[in-house]
Write a protein that binds this DNA or RNA. Sequence first.
DNA 1: TTGAAAGCGCTAACAT
DNA 2: ATGTTAGCGCTTTCAA
Lengths: 341, 341
Amino acid sequence: MTKQPPRPLTLRDVSEASGVSEMTVSRVLRNKGEVSEATRLRVQSAAKRLGYVPNKIAGALASSRVNLVAVIIPSLGNMVFPEVLAGISEALEGTGLQPVVGVTDYLPEKEEEVLYEMLSWRPSGVIIAGLEHSDASRAMLAQAGIPVVEIMDVDGDPIDACVGISHRRAGRKMAQAIIGAGYRRIGFLGTKMPLDHRARKRFEGFTQTMAKAGIEIADQEFYSGGSALAKGREMTAAILARTPDLDFLYYSNDMIGAGGLLWLLEKGYDIPGRIGLAGFNGVELLDGLPRQLATMDACRREIGQTAARIIAARYANAVMPEAEIVELTPTLTLGDTLIRG
Amino acid sequence: MTKQPPRPLTLRDVSEASGVSEMTVSRVLRNKGEVSEATRLRVQSAAKRLGYVPNKIAGALASSRVNLVAVIIPSLGNMVFPEVLAGISEALEGTGLQPVVGVTDYLPEKEEEVLYEMLSWRPSGVIIAGLEHSDASRAMLAQAGIPVVEIMDVDGDPIDACVGISHRRAGRKMAQAIIGAGYRRIGFLGTKMPLDHRARKRFEGFTQTMAKAGIEIADQEFYSGGSALAKGREMTAAILARTPDLDFLYYSNDMIGAGGLLWLLEKGYDIPGRIGLAGFNGVELLDGLPRQLATMDACRREIGQTAARIIAARYANAVMPEAEIVELTPTLTLGDTLIRG
DNA sequence: TTGAAAGCGCTAACAT
DNA sequence: ATGTTAGCGCTTTCAA
């Protein structure tokens, strides 16, 4: 038994049902142009009665206006990106613009595909995570003739606009706090992700500042895959088994930091006396831990909002102002795991 | 630095650059129809050189085929939904279909708006969370003439296809396990979300089975907003302050359950002897906790995969087979917080 | 194997 | 305030 799908309704159907020209129906449905109250009501009731849903494909083709903003991020599982998205949605509210999300899994080839696919829908703007893209991706973005906002990071050369924090500076700042608090035997625990450029830059900034103070990272541990919390435990156990005299552990994200914290508390370590801890991100989750992990928030929501506002402004003006770079400043929270310097 | 073309490139530009008719260029770019190897190469190199990105808006209008699947979910912050999404993306890989996500924040009005917006892009299918929708939403879905898969839940009347678990049955199953393990003074801790129908159904199934065994919920506590982990602590403290003799706490999600677990361990409660615990969802996070929380997984990834496969199958056949209902069976994990019955 | 013509459903720009 | 006309950039159909 195969029922053929009904033909979707068109403006013409509404026009015939209401006895009003297609053009005027179109005006009513878009709240555009002067239409008498009587006509408006007739059209609206006809449209509603029929269950008409406008065809944006045709509309977009005719008007060359698309109310879509392409948002390209590495992952949805990270919690960081849903928060950025929330900021974007919030700022887009009421502008008529709609975010459309594409996920790259941190893979440049996939980023290229997703970008191509999204650009083929002719969005009114692109918000894309990071400053590192393949040549092809950069070319597409530059050619598209629409506003492009690269987010999360400002350490690099943006194609157009850019909103984020300096991850290098963040790494340095954390290093200063740790050194200032008197820790000297420092271990680093991170993700095995050569393509996570922001984590890499934080690490670089961190080690640089350490080096200036004559301190070298005493040990490191990397992971990939699995439950971050569980990995945090395992890695912490492993690094301390190998290098028991570490007095500080710097985690590349709060989730593994939380795992480490739980493990250390169970083992009875004195925190932050015997050993200090810090993570990165300011994940809301952390509020519920037995101790508050030192961390640095990455201004995720604000990044999303600002990026969206840039796109919305350009959409409204229909012009391309000068490129802009917005650097936000992450806040360091010492919590209970980093001795107050 | 090349200056941006003010006008995006069209098929005609590629046609002129390659000296091949628009029609043949179109055929090459879509791998459709017979084209000689020589022509194919000329067209491809011209397209690549110019940086041509096809206009899917025009293509979709002309062919009335859109490779988009609308996915409508209540939230991205919940971790549950990104996992469903991952399942969808996975199953759509290689089908030529692309998921497009819309978020409703658990609000029926917003669901209606998002749905209207998405349907106006004439997607090839809709995957939507839950079976409860406004009349207008149901009408839109029924009228759209495209496959609709309602997911997560099977307790209700689907519009078309449906993939999920029975939350009532899940609630009952958990109640049986708890009763079977000998617990009698049971507290419930949940979210203050009248619109989370799945949580509500679990609760109903739970209390029903309890009632049959002559047990009434001894106390309840609800929350909204804030860090779930932190709320789990607070609520657990509150409910036990009020009703100290509770011997089991059933949490409506794993995150608050984890908060409760951490709090109880700190306070030195004997788990699961003095008091048992259970959550819902099987969140990956739980692996890293000091004890494994009893939980029931909701088959999130599998739900996404199955739903996507239904859409993809119909897309390929271009027909509308009979509606199908797929009920998956959640697995109960006793972990370390529910005495083995 | 290739090309020419005729729309897809809507809206911009003009009429009236 | 309302209607008419001419496309938007592509694909379908049919002809060569």
